[in-house]
């Protein structure tokens, strides 16, 4: 059942040779074009780059897209990038869906181009299917307590505490031992400058 109001754009990323080297990206792009509610499907060398993001923004405006599917890397890596890109183009960032065709496909099936291409199509299709049901969401804003807890009073904890305190934040430094100083206080001299540790 196709929803007339849905206008999905699919952006297939080559990721240089990271995806295009193991997957037929043009075949995937054409396949995506035929999926339900997809009005445009395009390919880019690096979708996360400025030209790549500009193309998404331009297409959102030109084609009046209301859902975006980026088929590239893991959402754990670039979901924030593309969400920002959507927001800049005036679309709610939650109308983005990523198809992880690099970590989940091209990089792990790099010796079987045909199977990898087939799987990529499936991953894109699943992403489009999910995108059709995405709704705009509002992120909650919460206040922040301007204080920080630093656990451990060795050299790392001391440095972090001083930097944070010197930038104006209240620091609570918690140390298990009776004194701060940690391992470094037990050293005599330190490399490479051979100066004292305390």
């Amino acid at each position: 059942m196709s929803d007339d109001s849905l206008r999905i754009g699919v952006f297939v990323c080559d990721c240089g040779m990271n995806i295009a080297g193991f997957v037929d990206c043009e075949e995937v792009r054409q396949y995506a074009e035929g999926l339900e509610d997809v009005v445009v499907s395009s390919r880019n060398r690096y979708t996360c780059s400025d030209p790549g993001q500009n193309e998404i923004k331009k297409t959102i405006q030109e084609q009046a897209l209301n859902r975006v599917v980026v088929a590239s890397c893991s959402p754990r890596l670039h979901e924030p990038t593309f969400r920002n890109c959507m927001a800049e183009a005036g679309l709610n960032p939650y109308l983005l869906e990523m198809a992880n065709i690099r970590e989940h496909c091209s990089w792990v099936h790099s010796n079987n181009r045909e199977a990898a291409t087939r799987k990529t199509k499936d991953i894109v299709k699943m992403a489009v299917a999910r995108a059709r049901f995405l709704k705009p969401q509002q992120e909650r804003e919460i206040p922040v307590t301007d204080a920080v807890l630093v656990i451990g009073g060795g050299i790392a904890g001391i440095q972090a505490s001083l930097d944070l305190a010197n930038t104006g934040h209240m620091v609570y430094l918690v140390e298990k031992q009776p004194t701060i100083g940690g391992m470094m206080a037990q050293l005599d001299k330190t490399f490479p400058t051979m100066d004292c540790s305390i």
Binding site: E139, I142, V144, I155, A160, T167
Partner: peptide
């Protein structure tokens, strides 16, 4: 250790310096 501690301080500072931060909508 010192380098990483300064980096961690800067990263924590981003949160502490903001009046409000956004939470996931999920």
């Amino acid at each position: 250790s010192v380098t990483q501690a300064s980096a961690a301080a800067a990263r924590a500072g981003i949160i502490l310096s903001a009046n409000k931060i956004k939470l996931e909508a999920a």
